[in-house]
Design a protein around this nucleic acid. Structure first.
Lengths: 337, 337
DNA sequence: CTGAAAGCGCTTACAG
DNA sequence: CTGAAAGCGCTTACAG
């Protein structure tokens, strides 16, 4: 039923080879013939079959993105960025939400490359998955890690400097006038958690502020954890003047708790989050935060992967991006008495 | 380099036809031969090439999802649900964020099916795109509309009853004791806006409450629009006792404004939103809302599309799902004086 | 139950 | 500049 390359060739009065050449913009086609082919294509409303092209060429023009979830604004932003970058290249995106089931051999994400459905894979995950990485390496399949670097296994990656982000966030609190600064950090399994924490500590030390273990508490990137810990600090009477929250969700919880106990933000409690959640600038008080370069993360990831696929780059490449501080109402200035 | 079906056949001492049969679980293979093939597959770590299978079979095992954005929790939930449903079927998802550029012939989303990259397409969009629908129809390509129905063009769809949602939301406000109930509706371009509005009006009428045009205001599904309109109502001294917001974003804006003007929620102002945003249950006061059956929307969409692809269903099918009221703090009970 | 042959719709040397 | 032939890696009647 659908028209194929032979129909076009017949209609144009040339061979399929010539049609193929026109399709692929080969320069060595006589102008006259090119025109005949173009006309036939238009008349027949012909569109080449990508599956056949993929088989013949040995590449599909599709890229896989493996990510744990899309309910996190950071993940969603990178996803959108990756899709946009691929679209600009005329490529397609196959998404696989599969943080967990990677261990199974026939996992969706493993099939993705083992069955040659895509030309390369982007892995956006704060968690390491050695089984997947090894499988990729064993098959010599092009892949790039996003927001994660890996020391054990040679792998190209694009990451964001979490130490820098943690340092700058804390620094902005110090600049606002705070001396006692708490930090609610994220889940321990993520590397970013330790890196942001280290940045926090170093910023304090650089300003001769001793690290107070009582003002360090483990959150889990949820509103509730921010709420609970802040409430606890308030009740125990050790609420600091400022809090650096592991992410904006946590920060929203901190604000929620402060409001409940009628503690003025930022006058009595300054807060800075991380990620620049869509709500950060929209709710009151507007939340200061650390914006991650998600657009660039996605774009650079696609560029790097493309180079790996085309073979332009052979060796492992690492790109480190810097996050950006965004100051809003929640860190305006501390009332220091 | 990668091992193919001929390598397996040779190793197993059978023909590729037999290998293919084992791969496709054909019953007519002698147990002995099946075992030899299985062993060879395991030894060689063979995985069939999906591209070649697609070409030979005429189907790819991939489905496309076209959606405008992933930054909306409703969209994100449906996306996740679709991916899960496809995964369960062993199929893959190609995502295309393309609400706008559908008009162009070589748009990413059009190439998706014109180039036979997917077996069917799911369109999740509150906006009509006749050009795309017609193109799909013309090519006789299987597709299902999600959260949208179309009267002009015959198309299968899975939708959610917005009239019912609007009616129930308003009804819950009446039940809570409110008489003067405002409604901040969504963007006019969406059909859901008019449907929810109609549900709102009918609920009022059914309780002998006249519709007050002054308490109807156009929002645009943003926090800001909810904030601005509520503020205006407060300043003009016409703030109603309760507000049905077009979605949770709008509702968050309403709460934000109420807080700013120190109007107690829900005592002085009851609020119900729509969508059950992840934050709805986490911030204080917890927001009452209308939860859409996103999981089922995605699952049913995939099922319907599968039936269309396999040819089990030929004619246009419409499935209408009901949303569910979720009552929380923001509508607890009105202080009616 | 098994396999030789043809076919899916393209692209790519190769020869002219 | 052009096309006949082979090949990409599978599946599917068809004959045995």
């Amino acid at each position: 039923m659908p028209v194929n390359i032979y129909d076009v060739a017949k209609k144009a009065g040339v061979s399929v080879v010539t049609v193929s050449r026109v399709l692929n913009n080969s320069p060595k086609v006589r102008a006259n013939n090119r025109q005949k082919v173009l006309t036939a294509i238009a008349d027949l409303d012909y569109q080449p079959n990508a599956v056949a092209q993929s088989l013949a060429r040995g590449s599909t023009g599709m890229v896989g993105l493996i990510l744990p979830t899309v309910f996190d604004p950071f993940m969603a932003q990178v996803l959108a960025s990756v899709e946009g970058a691929l679209r600009d290249k005329g490529m397609f995106l196959v998404t696989s939400f599969a943080a967990d089931d990677l261990q199974f051999g026939k996992a969706n994400s493993v099939r993705l490359f083992r069955e040659n459905r895509v030309d390369g894979i982007l892995i956006l995950s704060p968690l390491k998955n050695d089984a997947l990485f090894l499988e990729l390496k064993k098959n010599n399949f092009p892949f790039v890690l996003l927001d994660q670097h890996h020391s054990h296994i040679q792998a190209s990656s694009v990451t964001v400097d979490n130490y820098y982000g943690g340092y700058q966030a804390t620094n902005s609190l110090i600049t606002a006038g705070a001396k006692r600064i708490g930090h609610i950090f994220g889940s321990g399994v993520y590397e970013s958690t330790a890196e942001r924490l280290n940045g926090y500590k170093q910023a304090l030390l650089d300003h001769n502020i001793a690290v107070d273990e009582a003002l360090l508490a483990p959150g889990d990137f949820t509103i509730y954890s921010g709420y609970k810990i802040t409430k606890e600090w308030i009740i125990r009477g050790i609420l600091p003047q400022a809090i650096f929250a592991a992410d904006d969700n946590t920060a929203f919880g901190v604000i929620d708790a402060a409001r409940k106990f009628r503690i003025a933000v930022p006058e009595k409690l300054a807060i800075i989050g991380y990620d620049d959640h869509p709500f950060a600038s929209l709710l009151h008080p507007a939340l200061s935060t650390v914006r991650q370069p998600t657009e660039e993360l996605g774009r650079q990831g696609v560029e790097l992967l493309s180079s790996l696929i085309s073979g332009k780059i052979k060796r492992t490449t690492t790109i480190i991006l810097k996050p950006e501080i965004v100051l809003r109402e929640s860190t305006l200035s501390i009332n220091n008495c």
